[in-house]
Structure formats: C-alpha cells, structure tokens
Design a protein around this nucleic acid. Structure first.
Lengths: 99, 99
DNA sequence: TTGCTATTTTGCTAAATACCGAAATAGATG
DNA sequence: CATCTATTTCGGTATTTAGCAAAATAGCAA
C-alpha cells in the first residue's frame, strides 16, 4: 500500500491518473499534457506501474497506458477504513451499528 | 491539498494519525509508540500541522495533539471525487443519476 | 539494411526528506 | 533563582526524489 500512497503524493502523477481516468493514452499523448521532458514522465510511469496503479500495453512502437481503477479505489477505501471514515462499505450493515 | 497528500505518504505520519483517531495524545505519548528520536517525531508533527491534519494545544509544559478528522475526511473524499470514485456523496441525489 | 518514430534507460545534478544528537525554549516546582 | 521536564529548534549527514540531456532499445517501413 505504501507504494500507492507515495505514488499519489506527487501532483504530476495524480494528473496522469486523472488523464487516464477519461481514456487509455499513449506515453506521448500523456507527455503532451505536461511541460516536462519525456524521460521525466517515463520515470513517473514506472512509479505508477510499480504501485500497480497503471498498466502498460505495447502496440507496435507505442505504449498504451491504462488506469487500474480498482487498485486505486481499493487503496483509497482502505485508507478511509484505516481512519474509520465513512465510505460506501460503511453502509453494508446497519445492524452492526445498532447493536 | 498537496500538503495533505504529502503528509499521508509517510507511514510514520499515518501511524500518528491512527493513534490520534483513538484519543488526543501528548507529544511524549505519541513518541513512546515509535523507536524514533523525539526531534524526528517533532518534525513529523510540524508537517501534519502544516497540512492542518492535527492541532496542537499547550497544557502547561506538555503539548496535546488532536486529530482534525474533518480535514482528513474532506481531503480523502476530494481525492475520490477527483477520480470519480464512489463515495458517500455519490448517494446524495439519486435523481441526478437518473435524468 | 538504413533510417524513422516512440519510448525507456543511463548518468548526472539539485533539491527535498528523514533521521540524529546537542542546544535552546518554556512552563512548573523547590 | 535554580532546576527539572517536555518539547522544539538547530546543524549536520545520508538517502530519496524529480528533473534533464544523451544514449540505447524496439518496432516499422522504405
């Protein structure tokens, strides 16, 4: 989990995830949204991959990145649970709350 | 918001927040849960304070730290919204979903 | 094969981070 | 006042991080 939280701590990486939430994008398409060198972005991709937040698929000479939305969702819910904060899960069983 | 996400990226700081979720604690009480030097913990407190995640109240010679649970909650919900992930807010108006 | 395009890997800096011990601060107490 | 306790601030080091340009890789196409 720590890799995920570390990955989310950087604004550039959060922006990358936001872009990928809309649709899959190639490394170059993602890079075009930033004024950072491509190797720099490539480094961010590695970090996001290591955290399992994104997935890479090579199509010919381009690499298409895809957001692992479930990993992101589970990580954030797990963090909410850590702090006993209300999350969709909290609504699972009203009975538990009342007894 | 970035200060919050940066603050949450460190495991020691997340642990501090978890401890404070149970009850308010003095700097020394918190320190007793870690094998880190007090100046190191004090540095973590500053970072959490700068992110407005905790609050410090001086009582005599001791400092009592208190978790700002609402700030933590709003930050995490805001992150979930950023990625269009389901959160309690999503349930606010079923009408919006249906029209 | 040669060359073109997309991307990563390498090698390098500068800045940020986490840590520590020693010194400083501040409130309470004899 | 002198001292004790709780905590922070200071000064320093080691590690990690984010950035870049240049070189390497890999697939495609002429």
């Amino acid at each position: 989990m720590n890799l995920v939280y570390k990955a989310l701590a950087d604004p550039t990486r959060r922006k990358i995830l936001e872009l990928l939430r809309e649709r899959d994008l190639s490394a170059g398409e993602i890079a075009s949204h930033f004024s950072l060198a491509k190797p720099t972005l490539s480094g961010h991709f590695s970090i996001l991959k290591a955290a399992d937040l994104i997935q890479a698929d090579k199509v010919g000479t381009t690499i298409i990145y895809h957001l692992n939305i479930s990993v992101l969702e589970e990580s954030l819910l797990s963090l909410m649970n850590t702090f006993n904060l209300p999350s969709p899960q909290s609504f699972n069983s009203v009975e538990d709350v009342n007894e």
